[in-house]
Amino acid sequence: MRGAASALALAGFLAVLALVCVAAMVYGEWFDRRLLSSGALGVLLVLYAAIVVLFRKAGITAEE
C-alpha cells in the first residue's frame, strides 16, 4: 500500500517536472530565451541527480 502511494507520488512529481520542462521550452522559444530555458533544464537535471544521491544517503531509497 505504502509502496503504491509513494510510487504514485513519484510518478506525479515526474509528470509535473515534465510539464515544467515543456513550459520552460515553450517559454524559451517564444521569448527568444532558448539558452536560459535550456540552461535551467540542465540545472534541474543536475539537481535531480543530487536528489538521488541525497535520498540514498538519507536512507530513503535503498540499494537495489
Binding site: L35, G39, G42, V43, L45, V46, Y48, A49
Partner: peptide, 20 residues
Amino acid sequence: PAVWVLFGLGLLFILASVLP
C-alpha cells in the same frame, strides 16, 4: 546508474547554454 545519466545530461544542457 540513473544518477550519472541525469547528471551527464544536465551537464550537457548547462554547457550548451553557458558556452553556446
